[in-house]
Design a protein around this nucleic acid. Structure first.
Lengths: 164, 164
DNA sequence: TATTGTTATACTCTATAACTATA
DNA sequence: TATAGTTATAGAGTATAACAATA
């Protein structure tokens, strides 16, 4: 396709002229960014009543399933840099949702745990997140949702494998 | 040991203990964020040799298909705030990749165009982006990629409809 | 020497308010 | 009055270097 001197004829952009994005639409990366942003903004709104952001919600949920995990292990598990994790844990700790306790096996390490309040908030927020997902994905049926998650995690774990 | 096992038994987190994320894995939002980040970091690396980031690459590609488009229309098309668009156009303009010219129909507006250099760079960068996608998606066959894009744009356009 | 948690720092991305010149 | 482009600014999110205590 080396010929067409001009991609398209000159257009009047005065009114609501339709904008083309066929080239970008072919790229999975572009579609991922756009649809992620749509869901992300919406999820942030769903979590705001609980005083949570996506990252704090993620951490509370991870702590529920992995009580006592070390900060560095948790950071690695969700692809976050340790220094950034520290400040978020500071925030959750100051709110009384998470505790840092001594690790008997390694004096350098700290065990992270949910408090009773943290567990309660995680329950509520997770329920809200599920309701939110329902709203975002109402145009997808059960099979499509499962397919989407399967394809996305295939990308994730494929990339994991490659980097090692 | 010998304690009322809460969510899960107490674990020793000293070594490379496996971390669980079954609750988060069920959420499309979480999977989207993780897989987007994987692709994004990698794509950024593929574009770096051209001096481009994802946003500048996106704009060059949009200008190729929509020559003469106004700044605000372009910003709306890719869900970007106008003030942020201004500084990126400044950057591309300073590098001689994009021009701002007067719009004969509206003295407030500026028409955005690729320069010859901009068009050339877009070509090269788009080819690199396609090669990069090939690397990221090598674990997905043609049908799965098409399916993924279809599902993602279903989320995008479903959300568009809902917000109006 | 390597690793855990930490501090400090910087850069990108994103979001909002307000100004100007036109419409 | 509303809109296009712009300026200034602030907040998330992310990334790196370096340090003290411990392994």
């Amino acid at each position: 396709m080396g010929k067409p001197a001009q991609i398209s004829a000159e257009t009047n952009w005065d009114a609501g002229t339709a904008v083309r994005d066929t080239a970008l639409s072919r790229l999975v990366g572009y579609n991922l960014k756009r649809s992620f942003n749509n869901i992300y903004v919406d999820l942030a709104e769903a979590l705001r009543p609980f005083g949570l952001r996506m990252i704090t919600f993620t951490i509370l949920t991870m702590l529920r399933e992995n009580p006592g995990i070390r900060l560095s292990n948790l950071a690695a598990a969700i692809d976050m840099e340790k220094p950034n994790m520290v400040s978020v844990i500071d925030e959750l700790s100051a709110r009384g949702l998470v505790t840092r306790s001594a690790d008997p096996l390694d004096k350098r390490a700290r065990q992270l745990h949910l408090t009773a309040d943290g567990l309660k908030l995680q329950h509520q927020a997770y329920a809200a997140a599920c309701v939110h997902e329902e709203g975002c994905l109402q145009h997808l049926d059960e099979a499509e949702r499962a397919q989407l998650i399967a394809l996305l995690s295939k990308i994730r774990h494929g990339a994991d494998k490659d980097s090692r």
